[in-house]
């Protein structure tokens, strides 16, 4: 087994990022779109932590903490909006959100 380097982690994060992007672009269910965004943010965090290790600097991990904070805030507001929308519209499919053109 070859030694695991930072590059491996970057591959992992890129792959996760790609999966998240595909999720955002293809899913209709807005909750799952939000989840895909969480995947993207996790990819970022994997990157940051790997860099942090590689560079022997704690800053990357601090950055990751902020990303998690952001993810939490976004999820809270996003889910709040989804509930408000659901109350009015009874759907959470992205392409049924069609009062305005996308």
């Amino acid at each position: 087994m070859p030694e695991v380097t930072t590059a491996h982690y970057i591959f992992l994060s890129t792959a996760l990022f790609t999966i998240g992007t595909i999720g955002v672009l293809t899913r209709r269910n807005v909750v799952i779109i939000l989840m895909s965004i969480e995947l993207i943010l996790n990819a970022v965090n994997i990157n940051l932590v790997a860099f942090s290790k590689q560079l022997l600097s704690i800053n990357g991990q601090a950055f990751a903490v902020f990303i998690i904070v952001d993810a939490a805030a976004e999820a809270a507001v996003g889910l709040g909006i989804i509930i408000a929308l659901f109350r009015n519209k009874e759907t959470i499919n992205a392409d049924e959100i069609d009062l305005m053109k996308w």
Binding site: A72, A76, V77, G80, I83
Partner: peptide
């Protein structure tokens, strides 16, 4: 930011 998120989530939901 978190304060805003809290307020926002409450306002929205």
């Amino acid at each position: 930011l978190l304060l805003v998120a809290i307020v926002g989530a409450v306002v929205m939901a």
